[in-house]
Protein backbone atom coordinates (compact mmCIF):
# COMPACT_ATOMS: atom_id res chain seq x y z
CA UNK A 1 0.00 0.00 0.00
CA UNK A 2 2.79 2.40 0.94
CA UNK A 3 4.66 1.69 -2.28
CA UNK A 4 1.53 2.29 -4.36
CA UNK A 5 0.77 5.52 -2.46
CA UNK A 6 4.29 6.82 -3.07
CA UNK A 7 4.14 5.84 -6.75
CA UNK A 8 0.82 7.68 -7.20
CA UNK A 9 2.07 10.71 -5.28
CA UNK A 10 5.19 10.91 -7.47
CA UNK A 11 3.02 10.75 -10.61
CA UNK A 12 0.86 13.59 -9.23
CA UNK A 13 3.94 15.69 -8.43
CA UNK A 14 5.33 15.14 -11.94
CA UNK A 15 1.97 16.08 -13.44
CA UNK A 16 1.91 19.21 -11.28
CA UNK A 17 5.39 20.15 -12.51
CA UNK A 18 4.30 19.65 -16.14
CA UNK A 19 0.98 21.50 -15.77
CA UNK A 20 2.47 24.26 -13.60
CA UNK A 21 5.41 25.03 -15.87
CA UNK A 22 3.28 24.76 -19.03
CA UNK A 23 0.62 27.07 -17.62
CA UNK A 24 3.04 29.71 -16.38
CA UNK A 25 5.12 29.44 -19.57
CA UNK A 26 2.09 29.98 -21.80
CA UNK A 27 0.63 32.75 -19.66
CA UNK A 28 4.04 34.36 -18.89
CA UNK A 29 3.29 34.35 -15.19
CA UNK A 30 5.05 33.21 -12.04
CA UNK A 31 8.40 31.64 -12.90
CA UNK A 32 8.14 32.77 -16.52
CA UNK A 33 7.12 36.36 -15.88
CA UNK A 34 9.76 38.34 -17.83
CA UNK A 35 11.01 40.44 -14.89
CA UNK A 36 11.61 37.37 -12.76
CA UNK A 37 15.03 37.03 -14.33
CA UNK A 38 15.90 40.68 -13.90
CA UNK A 39 17.11 40.23 -10.34
CA UNK A 40 19.90 37.88 -11.41
CA UNK A 41 21.35 40.39 -13.84
CA UNK A 42 23.89 42.91 -12.63
CA UNK A 43 22.20 46.26 -12.41
CA UNK A 44 23.58 49.74 -12.86
CA UNK A 45 21.42 51.14 -10.09
CA UNK A 46 23.13 53.38 -7.62
CA UNK A 47 22.80 52.70 -3.92
CA UNK A 48 22.53 55.37 -1.28
CA UNK A 49 22.88 55.39 2.50
CA UNK A 50 20.43 56.57 5.10
CA UNK A 51 21.93 60.07 5.24
CA UNK A 52 21.44 60.58 1.50
CA UNK A 53 17.92 59.17 1.74
CA UNK A 54 17.14 61.61 4.54
CA UNK A 55 18.54 64.52 2.51
CA UNK A 56 16.29 63.53 -0.37
CA UNK A 57 13.36 63.36 2.01
CA UNK A 58 14.09 66.74 3.63
CA UNK A 59 14.53 68.45 0.28
CA UNK A 60 11.20 67.03 -0.84
CA UNK A 61 12.82 66.13 -4.13
CA UNK A 62 12.67 62.35 -3.83
CA UNK A 63 9.75 60.07 -4.39
CA UNK A 64 10.14 57.10 -2.05
CA UNK A 65 9.16 53.71 -3.42
CA UNK A 66 8.29 51.13 -0.75
CA UNK A 67 9.01 47.64 -2.13
CA UNK A 68 7.69 45.81 0.93
CA UNK A 69 4.51 43.77 1.11
CA UNK A 70 1.35 45.87 0.96
CA UNK A 71 0.38 44.69 4.45
CA UNK A 72 3.62 46.00 5.93
CA UNK A 73 3.24 49.21 3.93
CA UNK A 74 -0.28 49.71 5.27
CA UNK A 75 1.02 49.53 8.83
CA UNK A 76 3.63 52.28 8.45
CA UNK A 77 5.92 53.65 5.76
CA UNK A 78 8.09 56.65 4.92
CA UNK A 79 5.74 59.64 4.45
CA UNK A 80 4.32 60.01 0.93
CA UNK A 81 5.99 56.77 -0.23
CA UNK A 82 4.36 54.79 -3.02
CA UNK A 83 3.95 51.05 -2.45
CA UNK A 84 5.30 48.82 -5.23
CA UNK A 85 5.49 45.29 -3.82
CA UNK A 86 7.72 43.01 -5.88
CA UNK A 87 4.89 40.55 -6.54
CA UNK A 88 2.73 43.26 -8.06
CA UNK A 89 5.52 45.43 -9.47
CA UNK A 90 4.46 45.63 -13.11
CA UNK A 91 0.88 46.65 -12.38
CA UNK A 92 2.00 49.11 -9.69
CA UNK A 93 4.67 50.67 -11.92
CA UNK A 94 2.11 51.15 -14.67
CA UNK A 95 0.22 53.41 -12.24
CA UNK A 96 3.23 55.77 -12.15
CA UNK A 97 2.41 57.10 -15.61
CA UNK A 98 2.03 60.65 -14.33
CA UNK A 99 5.48 60.60 -12.70
CA UNK A 100 8.27 62.18 -14.70
CA UNK A 101 10.81 59.61 -15.96
CA UNK A 102 13.72 61.61 -14.52
CA UNK A 103 12.15 62.00 -11.08
CA UNK A 104 14.51 61.20 -8.18
CA UNK A 105 13.29 57.80 -6.97
CA UNK A 106 14.52 56.15 -3.77
CA UNK A 107 13.55 52.49 -3.44
CA UNK A 108 13.62 50.70 -0.09
CA UNK A 109 12.42 47.46 1.50
CA UNK A 110 12.83 45.94 4.98
CA UNK A 111 16.55 46.41 5.29
CA UNK A 112 19.89 45.11 4.17
CA UNK A 113 18.66 41.50 4.12
CA UNK A 114 15.92 41.98 1.52
CA UNK A 115 16.45 42.15 -2.22
CA UNK A 116 13.09 43.43 -3.35
CA UNK A 117 14.26 47.08 -3.40
CA UNK A 118 16.92 46.14 -5.94
CA UNK A 119 14.47 44.04 -7.97
CA UNK A 120 11.85 46.78 -8.01
CA UNK A 121 14.59 49.31 -8.86
CA UNK A 122 15.59 47.24 -11.89
CA UNK A 123 11.98 47.09 -13.05
CA UNK A 124 11.60 50.83 -12.61
CA UNK A 125 14.63 51.33 -14.82
CA UNK A 126 13.20 48.90 -17.35
CA UNK A 127 10.03 51.01 -17.29
CA UNK A 128 12.11 54.02 -18.33
CA UNK A 129 12.92 55.74 -15.04
CA UNK A 130 16.45 57.11 -15.22
CA UNK A 131 17.06 58.45 -11.71
CA UNK A 132 16.54 55.36 -9.56
CA UNK A 133 18.47 54.83 -6.32
CA UNK A 134 18.27 51.95 -3.88
CA UNK A 135 18.37 52.75 -0.19
CA UNK A 136 19.77 49.45 1.07
CA UNK A 137 19.47 50.20 4.77
CA UNK A 138 15.75 50.42 4.17
CA UNK A 139 12.96 50.51 6.69
CA UNK A 140 15.14 49.08 9.47
CA UNK A 141 17.73 51.85 9.25
CA UNK A 142 15.16 54.61 8.68
CA UNK A 143 13.12 53.72 11.75
CA UNK A 144 16.32 52.98 13.71
CA UNK A 145 17.25 56.64 13.25
CA UNK A 146 13.82 57.70 14.43
CA UNK A 147 13.02 59.40 11.13
CA UNK A 148 9.39 60.20 10.35
CA UNK A 149 6.95 57.53 9.23
CA UNK A 150 3.25 57.57 8.55
CA UNK A 151 0.34 55.16 8.52
CA UNK A 152 -1.71 54.64 5.37
CA UNK A 153 -4.92 56.59 5.22
CA UNK A 154 -7.69 53.99 5.37
Amino acid sequence: MIRQSIREAVILILLAVVFGTSYTFVTHRGLFAPPANASSRPSPISTIDVAAAKRGFDAGAALFIDARHSFEFSRRHIPHAVNIPLADADAAISRLDSVSRDRYLIVYCDGAECNSSMDVGVRLMQAGFTNVHVFFGGWEEWTGKGYPTERSAS
Binding site: S5, L12, I13, A16, L31
Partner: peptide, 25 residues
Protein backbone atom coordinates in the same frame (compact mmCIF):
# COMPACT_ATOMS: atom_id res chain seq x y z
CA UNK B 1 4.47 27.41 -10.07
CA UNK B 2 4.18 23.81 -8.88
CA UNK B 3 2.51 23.74 -5.43
CA UNK B 4 -0.89 25.13 -6.58
CA UNK B 5 -1.10 22.41 -9.23
CA UNK B 6 -0.16 19.76 -6.67
CA UNK B 7 -3.03 21.03 -4.53
CA UNK B 8 -5.47 21.09 -7.43
CA UNK B 9 -4.50 17.62 -8.68
CA UNK B 10 -4.64 15.95 -5.28
CA UNK B 11 -7.93 17.74 -4.54
CA UNK B 12 -9.40 16.42 -7.80
CA UNK B 13 -7.88 13.01 -7.07
CA UNK B 14 -9.68 12.85 -3.73
CA UNK B 15 -12.99 14.01 -5.22
CA UNK B 16 -12.89 11.88 -8.35
CA UNK B 17 -11.18 8.82 -6.94
CA UNK B 18 -8.14 9.11 -9.24
CA UNK B 19 -4.95 8.03 -7.51
CA UNK B 20 -6.76 8.27 -4.16
CA UNK B 21 -3.87 6.92 -2.10
CA UNK B 22 -1.29 9.13 -3.77
CA UNK B 23 -3.62 12.13 -3.42
CA UNK B 24 -4.11 11.38 0.27
CA UNK B 25 -0.37 10.95 0.84
Amino acid sequence: TVIPWMELLCGLGLLLGLYPRGSSL
